[in-house]
Amino acid sequence: MQLNFSGLRALVTGAGKGIGRDTVKALHASGASVVAVSRTDADLVSLSKECPGIEAVCVDLGNWEATEQALGRVGAVDLLVNNAAVVLMQPFLEITKETFDRSFNVNLRSVVQVSQIVARGMIARGVPGSIVNISSMVAHVTYPNLITYSSTKSAMTMLTKAMAMELGPHKIRVNSVNPTVVLTAMGKKVTADPEFSRKMKERHPLRKFAEVEDVVNSILFLLSDRSASTTGSGIMVDGGYLAS
């Protein structure tokens, strides 16, 4: 999708790999100034070589104090993509406090914290903005061993709506993108069992999982003025899974 983000500054979390990395590259190619946030410094180093001029911030978003220190004075941001997430797979009866806390701290709490930082800046500057939360189709369906992850994404659905309602008067739009399995490193964890992967793919009317580009195109659309009247919504990039 060819869009022009020249003159705008974007912040992308979980920027080191997968969807986040390709989102940074697409925004950079479209003229945006990009702040790339990841907890893995090596990923940021390699990304900076691919996208000269991006601002790299290395921080573990699961740590509230470290995030405040790293991003509290990030400066003007017009576009935010909350993509950082962890997938910690455990069956319900074996979920530990550590798994639960880590999942919610990274997948949901950091969305609140980073969005607060960015939205306050937008409001102080009196400018419109767009926030896109990366969710999942498992916000709406369940899978074995993904209970904690699914719960964070389901909570993100309501968080997105609540943010849209409260930030709308400030001309800040908030939406989500809900992909099916995307064959990033994270997605491959979920589909490690070939038989499970085959059956799951057959449940998709399009008989395929999503490409990273499919997700990035939806993110760019929601960030852009082409979705100027869209807020509090979620784009399903699920190959028709929820329709089957």
Score class of each variant (00 low, 15 high):
residue 2 Q to I: 13
residue 2 Q to P: 10
residue 4 N to P: 10
residue 5 F to G: 11
residue 6 S to F: 03
residue 9 R to F: 07
residue 12 V to F: 05
residue 14 G to C: 05
residue 18 G to L: 02
residue 20 G to Y: 14
residue 27 L to A: 05
residue 31 G to K: 02
residue 32 A to M: 10
residue 34 V to W: 03
residue 39 R to E: 12
residue 40 T to D: 11
residue 40 T to I: 12
residue 41 D to P: 00
residue 43 D to L: 05
residue 45 V to Q: 12
residue 46 S to Q: 13
residue 46 S to Y: 09
residue 57 V to D: 03
residue 58 C to M: 03
residue 58 C to H: 09
residue 59 V to A: 00
residue 60 D to R: 03
residue 62 G to T: 00
residue 63 N to M: 01
residue 69 Q to N: 14
residue 71 L to S: 00
residue 74 V to I: 11
residue 76 A to N: 06
residue 78 D to R: 04
residue 78 D to Y: 11
residue 78 D to G: 11
residue 79 L to E: 03
residue 93 L to G: 15
residue 95 I to P: 07
residue 99 T to C: 04
residue 105 N to P: 08
residue 105 N to I: 00
residue 110 S to E: 06
residue 110 S to D: 03
residue 110 S to C: 09
residue 111 V to K: 02
residue 113 Q to P: 03
residue 115 S to F: 04
residue 126 G to H: 09
residue 133 N to Q: 12
residue 140 H to W: 15
residue 143 Y to L: 15
residue 157 T to K: 15
residue 158 M to C: 08
residue 159 L to Y: 05
residue 160 T to L: 08
residue 160 T to K: 08
residue 161 K to F: 05
residue 162 A to K: 13
residue 165 M to Y: 15
residue 168 G to D: 11
residue 172 I to K: 02
residue 177 V to L: 11
residue 178 N to Q: 14
residue 187 G to M: 08
residue 191 T to A: 05
residue 191 T to C: 04
residue 192 A to R: 07
residue 193 D to H: 01
residue 195 E to Q: 05
residue 208 K to M: 11
residue 208 K to C: 07
residue 209 F to K: 05
residue 213 E to A: 15
residue 216 V to A: 14
residue 220 L to N: 04
residue 222 L to P: 02
residue 226 R to V: 04
residue 228 A to V: 08
residue 231 T to R: 01
residue 239 G to V: 02
residue 243 A to I: 15
